[in-house]
Simulated scan of single mutants.
Amino acid sequence: MMIHGFRSSHQDFSFGAWTLTASKTHIMKSADVEKLAEEMRMPALPEMMFGDNVLRIQHSSGFGIEFNATDALKCVNKKQGMLKVACAEEWQESRADSEHSKETVKPYDWTYTTDYKGTLLGDNLTFKVVPTTDRIDTEKLKTREQIMFFDEVLLFEDELHDHGVSSLSVKIRVMPSSFFLLLRFFLRVDGVMIRMNDTRLYHEGDKNFMLREYTSRESKITNLKHVPATLYTEPNEISQYLPVTETMYEKLEFPEIPDCKSAASTDNTKVQSKLT
């Protein structure tokens, strides 16, 4: 198990024509964080910023999708604070001091809420993203299938000046016939609210597309009085109590390349035979 920021690791795993890469390294140095914040025109970035961490799914022909902290933060509202709570001004002032900023801190979403769903890769060849009525077969995911590869990558985390937590992490698991990824943004502002934005990505080895589902959930703490407070810190447990505020269902269709589908399924059979 990785201790946040202290141990680096780089893992590649082949699934048919796909290479799945999970790369984890140390927290960005403060000088690099300040430089990046300036480039992104944000007053501050999360306390634990893993700018070099990445989870990537790439086809042998170049197209794919990856998940990284910098692109996720580009989806944060930089102009105004979306959530006003008592501690917000105090928090921003303390952060301004720590960043040695002499100018007034501009209002921004200090919770780092992001609706990031991944970064599409490829120049000439890329996924075609289309709305779909298809759904990820969650029952199939519950069946006991051998897990051939698993990893979890933390992209950023912030304790909101001891008023809660804001974090973004992505994990993937690979079975003989498919792989499943979950990107989760989790926000808890103590005494105020809990928000969770989940992106799920699913691919079956013999299909020429992936399914991507985005679900946003949110609740004020006052509406969670019936839920044990111990669950507030457990995203998997609290999610069922948070009303859904937004959903998006998409199909990531593979670009037209010769034998894309057949090559993937043929190679995948080879992988299975080695591991079963």
Rank of each mutant, 00 (worst) to 15 (best):
F6W: 15
F6Q: 15
Q11V: 15
W18T: 04
T25Y: 10
A31H: 13
A37G: 14
A37F: 10
E39S: 11
M40D: 15
L55K: 00
I57T: 05
S61Q: 08
F63P: 03
E66F: 03
L73F: 02
L73R: 09
L73P: 02
G81H: 04
V85E: 06
A88Y: 09
A88F: 13
E90L: 07
W91N: 01
Q92E: 10
S94E: 13
S98L: 13
H100A: 14
E103R: 12
V105W: 04
V105I: 15
V105D: 02
P107I: 07
Y108V: 01
K117Y: 02
T119D: 04
L121M: 05
G122H: 02
D123S: 06
N124E: 00
F127N: 02
T133E: 14
D137L: 11
K142E: 14
R144K: 12
R144E: 10
D151R: 02
V153M: 01
L154H: 07
L155I: 08
V165A: 05
S166R: 01
L168P: 02
S169H: 08
K171G: 04
P176A: 01
F180D: 09
F180E: 09
L181K: 04
R184T: 06
R188Q: 06
R188T: 05
R200E: 14
L201Q: 00
M210H: 09
R212Q: 12
E213K: 09
Y214I: 03
T215H: 01
R217N: 06
E218T: 07
S219Y: 04
K220A: 15
I221N: 00
T222M: 11
N223K: 12
H226Q: 13
A229G: 12
L231S: 07
N236A: 14
S239Q: 08
Q240M: 12
T247S: 11
T247L: 06
K251G: 12
L252V: 14
K261C: 11
T269G: 13
S273H: 13
T276M: 03
T276H: 07
